[in-house]
Design a protein around this nucleic acid. Structure first.
Lengths: 250, 250
DNA sequence: GAGTGGTCTAGACCACGTA
DNA sequence: ACGTGGTCTAGACCACTCG
């Protein structure tokens, strides 16, 4: 009774997914092309609806396809923004009154909304880095070409920025870094931590993410002269919309 | 006696997923704890098996839980490696005979396997950057504490490294960068591009990735004096195992 | 052996987009 | 109006893990 060498073929849904994936990666199906739908797969392979759905779900969860209600399943488009990690934060940028965002988008239209500014108790992590218990927070969402691509929350020590333009909706030319400079706390060094993970439901909603799209989480700490942390910025990026670039010397 | 579903609210499977997610994020269910299984959810909520599966699939695809055949569904563990983008590639590192990997793992055991070295025709992208049509490639896989965490492929201009230790399995103290230095092409500048996406099936297999785990794709170009590209390194990291850190001045 | 997740069938009704 | 994907039921058999 031992035995039965159980040879394992791939399940049907996986073989169908493999075949469709090949067509996408080989370019036989291009950006935005329509995939065979549930009904088409049922007929073509003689399978149940749930099995056809399962095959499509594989590609959707891989981020290769996006379903459109009442219409079909389509090959996903990919058009990333290049975000320069160091050049964009050079002193010349904000010293000349440019928004950081300007160096990323190269003329593509962008917008900021969902701006919320508040004084809050610092989270454990932020409080430890900034060495304070009360912070001012600037939360906002960035969109490019009408599509939301990034959520950001900047934290400042409350005592440092209280009553300044840093806590106003419009921070003026050069943004908060220029204002911090005027306060004698110009950032001179930055440290960024980059992670990637699947989005939480709130992020999925605010960034309008289809299934199969990870987010890139960037946590930046801005340090003034003497190594004093003056800002923590927690950013959540649509991974399908970004390429991060970092340059450094050996 | 079935109740008609109310469609102004979230679907059942999503509400169940939300509840379980809350328990995970609030810490009520900790790392490695067992979630209620399919049968438990069927009984508890009076739903069909497929619906219970759907609820669990949400959490699995979010990377919050991992299914174990014949056993159950468990809260996922998270234990990242910190990878320093600039410090680790400083000249002192490889000039002192240290492997780059040493600066990442802080004493945790690591291993390299699946090493394959070959002379190949360059891909379109790599060929353009290196300005050559033939390349030597070093492919390998890194594991930490017995778990695979990274795939890497380093490309070098074939003419530059032909017959040198760069194309040998053991590249000697300080690794390929030290060897390139001896050839008069020491890297002086690095440029890294960071992306995140869902893994392809081959990557899922080699990195042993559970569903819901993105990969971080890092493409590094090493430039010698005069801006000549001497290496392109394409890395694929298990996103659940890494935190990338980049430091730079304003 | 009992329980678990993995795959699959054959139906059903719904909300939605497009024509 | 029709076809699409979204949700759900009620079964079934399998391979696997664990006590």
């Amino acid at each position: 009774m031992t035995e039965s060498p159980v040879h394992h073929e791939s399940p049907i849904y996986r073989r169908i997914a493999d075949r469709l994936r090949d067509q996408i990666l080989s370019g036989a199906l291009g950006d935005g092309d329509r995939l065979p739908g549930e009904n088409a797969l049922m007929n073509e392979y003689g399978i149940a609806r749930a099995t056809a759905r399962q095959a499509l779900a594989v590609l959707i969860n891989e981020g290769l396809a996006v379903p459109k209600r009442g219409s079909g399943v389509y090959v996903r488009l990919f058009r990333p923004i290049r975000r320069h990690g160091s050049r964009r934060l050079s002193r010349e940028q904000w010293a000349q009154g440019l928004a950081i965002w300007d160096s990323d988008t190269r003329g593509r239209s962008y917008a900021v909304d969902e701006v919320r500014i508040a004084r809050e108790a610092a989270s454990e992590h932020v409080g430890r880095v900034l060495g304070t218990e009360e912070v001012w927070v600037r939360r906002r969402r960035y969109s490019v070409d009408g599509r939301p691509v990034q959520l950001a929350a900047s934290f400042f020590p409350a005592d440092l920025v209280e009553g300044t333009a840093v806590v106003l909706p419009d921070t003026g030319p050069g943004g908060v870094y220029a204002r911090l400079g005027e306060l004698g706390h110009a950032p001179v060094h930055f440290s960024e931590e980059v992670r990637a993970r699947m989005p939480l439901p709130g992020e999925t909603e605010l960034l309008n993410l289809p299934a199969g799209t990870p987010v890139i989480s960037v946590t930046r700490v801005a340090l003034a002269e003497g190594g004093v942390a003056v800002e923590v910025n927690e950013m959540t990026l649509d991974a399908a919309s970004y390429v991060l670039q970092y340059d450094f010397d050996a």
